[in-house]
Design a binder for these strands. Structure first.
Length: 244
DNA sequence: AACCGTTCCAACCGCTTACTA
DNA sequence: ATAGTAAGCGGTTGGAACGGT
């Protein structure tokens, strides 16, 4: 059996010092991201491996973009959230240089509020009856940059054109998101969101078809309805899959 | 200057999944 | 087949920074 990842009583918590950062950077530059359990000791850090991993992924990685989110990034996050819900790692995977933590924080501190101010329920991307709602929610002043929002909140997917069914649940989510902003009827048109997940997946792991078959088989056998296994997560590509 | 409330984000916690002995 | 562990993930929290009074 494996050893536990760290001895909790000997590990340091809280903010990282520059020295600690440097130790971790130096170690990973030299040895790469290996086994996180062994990294703290090897790098001379009194940290839990989990903490090292988080620090590296969310803060120290050289490919991180950091800084303010661009308009198109905001737009994309909202669109992807409408599609995927709080699956931050999936969303972040489509925003090069951004981490799930960063996207999540940005959503919670900025975008959620913006949607609320626009009278859109951020949980389901529907126009809310209870939330404040400007007369012209889209074109108002500083939020004009979210003008793509109508489309994000949810053009229903027109077809299920995927070559394989990645998971019924994603379609459930899509169709749920897709039903939004309808305000009980089809009162607006939502023109430009391409939710077709089929053709743009740039990475086709060898195992995909087999995996999907297995999963479908398993789902069928167990009548499983757990929604979280969206096969999109096997794609390592940061390419924006959804909008072209 | 001091206090208070709000915002933001880094980091932690706990759960789930995948993997391995 | 089973149980234990590492890795990954989303939710939550603590505290620094900021703005208003």
């Amino acid at each position: 059996m494996r050893k536990p990842c760290c001895d909790k009583q000997d590990t340091k918590k809280g903010a990282w010092s520059k020295q600690e950062d440097q130790k971790l950077i130096d170690y990973i530059r030299k040895h790469g991201e290996g086994c996180w359990r062994t990294i703290p000791q090897a790098a001379g850090l009194l940290r839990c491996g989990k903490s090292c991993r988080l620090r590296w992924i969310n803060y120290l990685r050289p490919d991180l973009k950091r800084g303010n989110f661009a308009e198109d990034e905001e737009d994309l996050i909202i669109k992807l959230h409408a599609l995927l819900g709080n699956r931050w790692s999936l969303i972040a995977g489509r925003l090069p240089g951004r981490t799930d933590n960063e996207v999540k924080n940005y959503w919670n501190s900025h975008l959620r509020r913006k949607l609320i101010n626009m009278g859109i329920d951020p949980n389901n991307h529907r126009l809310s009856q209870n939330l404040p709602r400007p007369q012209n929610p889209i074109s108002t002043s500083s939020d004009a940059k979210l003008s793509g929002l109508k489309s994000c909140v949810a053009e229903p997917p027109v077809t299920k054109s995927r070559g394989f069914d990645i998971n019924n649940n994603i379609y459930d989510q899509v169709s749920d998101a897709g039903s939004c902003l309808l305000e009980d009827d089809n009162s607006c048109s939502l023109p430009d969101l391409n939710l077709d997940l089929t053709t743009s997946i740039p990475f086709t792991p060898v195992l995909v078809n087999h995996d999907v078959e297995e999963r479908q088989k398993h789902n069928h056998e167990s009548n499983a309805s757990e929604p979280d296994q969206v096969d999109l997560h096997v794609s390592p590509s940061p390419t924006l899959l959804l909008f072209r």
